[in-house]
């Protein structure tokens, strides 16, 4: 990675494009996970990439360019949100929900990819903000160490794995119980209760 950064700093367009191919999803995902609109997320992403280009030759740890990008993006998102004087919203999910297919019943949801997407986004929308961010980052960085995630979220690298597991468990719970009002706050006990309930629901679906 450091070699790629150095090549880009010496003017290699190919190296620059490879850097973007490697981390473009990460920057975009972090911006969108903060609930920014397409327009705001694009502005933030362009600013971050322009700033990286400006600093290519001066990054103190070029091998950690992914962590630099994720941290810089998160800071810029938080600054924009402060500027707009609003809380971290779920605008992304609301927008996506509008773009997805109209509501269909449970069985169709399981078989139709578009409806399936809508259900996942709805479940994602009910996650706490830190879970939304960590999942979007990990989608963009599936094979990486957790360095970029831990630095952007200011958490120890050892906490990323357990946090990821808890967030995915909440995502599952929200998928299973889309109408549950405490989905985003449910702890282990609530998750267990939902799991018990899922058996009953499956049975009811099979009967119907």
């Amino acid at each position: 990675m450091a070699a790629l950064v150095r090549a880009a700093s010496r003017g290699s367009d190919e190296a620059w494009n490879l850097l973007f191919a490697r981390f473009g999803d990460l920057v975009w995902g972090v911006a969108r996970a903060h609930g920014l609109s397409h327009c705001d997320a694009s502005d933030v992403a362009q600013t971050v990439w322009l700033r990286l280009y400006q600093r290519l030759g001066r990054l103190t740890q070029p091998e950690r360019v992914g962590a630099w990008l994720s941290t810089t993006t998160r800071r810029e998102c938080l600054r924009l949100l402060r500027e707009q004087q609003r809380q971290v919203p779920s605008a992304l999910v609301e927008q996506l929900a509008r773009e997805m297919a109209p509501a269909v019943d449970e069985i169709e949801l399981a078989d139709d990819p578009r409806a399936d997407s809508r259900r996942f986004w709805a479940a994602y929308a009910r996650l706490p903000a830190h879970c939304q961010l960590i999942l979007r980052m990990l989608v963009a960085e599936p094979g990486s160490s957790y360095q970029a995630v831990s630095e952007a979220m200011d958490m120890p690298p050892g906490s990323v794995g357990p946090t990821r597991a808890r967030c995915l468990e909440r995502l599952r719970a929200n998928l299973l119980y889309p109408d549950s009002s405490d989905g985003e706050n449910g702890g282990e006990q609530a998750t267990r209760q939902r799991a018990l309930g899922s058996g009953r629901r499956r049975a009811a679906e099979e009967v119907s």
């Binding site: 473009g24 992304l92 773009e99 997407s117 996942f120 986004w121 999942l135 989608v139 599936p142 995915l168």
Partner: peptide, 15 residues
Amino acid sequence: AFRRFSEIVRRSDPV
């Protein structure tokens, strides 16, 4: 769930 969510993100909210 993570794999499916990943597919959905890439499909419906790409760069």
